[in-house]
Design a protein around this nucleic acid. Structure first.
Length: 534
DNA sequence: CTGGGGAAGGGGCCC
DNA sequence: TGGGCCCCTTCCCCA
């Protein structure tokens, strides 16, 4: 017995789930666009994806081989077996699709494209920009060994194919191989030779924004397909939409829609080029929403913190000024609410004064006249972090008693740290560090308060490592498993901490009442109980 | 209902 | 770039 429509129904369901982001367990990054999908489906369609799906939840595709709009068609094909109709000329469309299909080892799609190209009546073009030294250098280091193997396996299998298919595909493979980046290496891809990107204000998180030439906004692309359906494929900048025309990294000379080869485009955008040789990337992420402690609008919450550093923040009270604001609700769609409903409620607009805080990041420069640096306890605004820091010092005396109390707490928890020399002092806040690297990392916080955005939810981070760690939580990446109970954790430290539950070890003891705790943090909160006024 | 403890998630930050 | 640690916070359970 056989259900006639079973396969079709199954695929239909999967595609609907993809549209909602439901159970999607992998993110494909193409230039500045993110696509969510199911590992199983991709692995079943492509040997290339199959080789990556085992370990990676985040896959970077070579933007020379596949553009976001083409990959969207490819993904539609994988999930439906159909190619969506587009306004593109036949020749152009199928050439781009063939390139992508060959790159991704989607043989059925490649064969289909070849047939259609023959139907167009023109010979198969081999794009001159497809084999280029600088791109090869960029992707080769990231190419997993498994892909080497798979490509040759694929060629072997290809021997069974008709001669005409073999030749063209071999040409396309020549000198190239798919480059990928695993989720854990987020941010390292495509940054070869990029120099100190932070200093020119382009280095942001996944390094997606600076590669964006003309496609539509990240906000749009990361949205599930169901949310993007109203907007056309991201090939052409939508006229009259200022938000779109100010996309991060869009070279001004592309605004007239002048057609360019992928290769030329990539060359102009290449981080390998010195700054002066590439178009100035105008970073525009205005009105990107900043997540903020919700409870009492952030203010009361922040005043609980004793340390002066905790009193500083860079916020404005502005509402998002245009449609370019990025909320995680937009990014995830409704299907995520089950998992992340709590977090989303924290970000929902208009719930509390804190929820309205907006992180302004105009080319990483403070807009003149705007008091972006706000002292949380007193609400005063300042045009620069230095001014804010100077102001914050006036609070420190008030906070001193709280601070002393906190230091007293930590003294009880742990012995005082070793008195190592810290010769490297921050010129802004006078904090000192053992080595210049730590100082530099700290000082960046003054100039680029939150340069690393999560490209899934839009949240901003002070350090790339924090952002990649945050990405793991989106992707459900929990590599550290407890052998006793099977519980999994995102961090090794959490597992170590958790293991004390099984061992019964309680290394943290309250010096006041003798209470023992498995977690240091619980001892600290316990100590607060002792010290807080009755 | 409330407060305290246990356990865990997530971000900041230093190394 | 990732590990380790600190801190804040939340959820659950129980007295």
């Amino acid at each position: 017995m056989e259900l006639p429509n079973h396969a079709r129904q199954l695929l239909l369901q999967l595609n609907q789930q993809r549209a909602k982001g439901f159970l999607c367990d992998v993110i494909i990054v193409v230039e500045n666009a993110l696509f969510r999908a199911h590992k199983n489906v991709l692995a079943a369609s492509s040997m290339y994806f199959k080789s990556l799906m085992l370990h990676d939840n985040l896959v970077n595709l070579d933007m020379d081989m596949v553009s976001p709009s083409v990959f969207r068609q490819v993904l539609d094909f994988i999930y439906t077996g159909k190619l969506p109709s587009t306004d593109q000329p036949c020749q152009q469309k199928f050439t781009a699709l063939l390139t992508a299909a060959s790159y991704l080892q989607l043989h059925d799609l490649a064969a289909l494209c070849r047939k259609r190209l023959k139907g167009c009546g023109k010979p198969l073009p081999v794009k001159p920009g497809m084999v280029r030294g600088h791109r090869k250098q960029k992707v080769s280091s990231a190419k997993p060994a498994s892909v080497h193997r798979l490509v040759s396996e694929d060629k072997q299998r290809d021997q069974d194919k008709p001669q005409d298919e073999r030749v063209s595909e071999d040409e396309e493979y020549a000198g190239r191989a798919p480059g990928t980046t695993s989720g854990s290496k987020t941010g390292s891809s495509g940054e070869v030779g990029g120099g100190d990107e932070e200093e020119d204000g382009q280095e942001v998180g996944l390094d997606l924004s600076k590669k964006s030439p003309s496609e539509s906004s990240v906000t749009e692309e990361v949205s599930p397909p169901s949310l993007r359906d109203e907007s056309p494929p991201s090939e052409s900048p939508s006229a009259g939409n200022s938000a779109t025309s100010e996309e991060p990294g869009q070279p001004p000379d592309l605004e007239d829609g002048e057609p360019m080869e992928l290769g030329e485009r990539a060359l102009e955008k290449s981080p390998l080029l010195p700054d002066g040789d590439r178009p100035r990337a105008r970073f525009r992420q205005s009105a990107r929403k900043k997540e903020w402690p919700k409870r009492e609008g952030g203010v009361a919450n922040a005043t609980e913190k004793p340390a002066a550093a905790n009193l500083r923040s860079v916020v404005t009270g502005d509402q998002p000024s245009n449609g370019n604001s990025f909320s995680s609700d937009q990014a995830f769609g409704s299907a995520e609410e089950g998992e992340n409903g709590k977090d989303h409620s924290d970000e929902s607009e208009g719930e509390s004064p804190g929820a309205n805080y907006v992180y302004r990041q105009e080319g990483f420069e403070v807009a003149v006249g705007d008091n972006l640096y706000v002292c949380i306890p007193c609400g005063k605004g300042f045009p620069s972090s230095e001014r804010l820091n100077a102001h914050v010092e006036t609070h420190t005396e008030e906070e001193l008693c709280i601070k002393e109390e906190a230091e007293d707490l930590s003294a009880r928890v742990a012995p005082p740290p070793g008195t190592e020399p810290r010769p490297f002092e921050c010129s802004v806040c006078s904090k000192s560090y053992k080595d210049p690297a730590s100082l530099r990392q700290h000082e960046k916080g003054h100039w680029l308060p939150r340069p690393f955005p999560c490209h899934i939810c839009g949240k901003m981070f002070t350090q790339r490592g924090t952002m990649t760690r945050h990405m793991r939580s989106h992707l459900g990446l929990k590599p550290f498993a407890c052998e006793e109970c099977g519980m999994r954790f995102t961090r090794q430290y959490r597992l170590t901490e958790h293991m004390r539950v099984h061992s019964g070890e309680k290394p943290y003891e309250c010096q006041l009442c003798g209470g023992k705790f498995t977690q240091q943090r619980n001892l600290i909160s316990h100590l607060r109980m002792h010290t807080s006024p009755a």
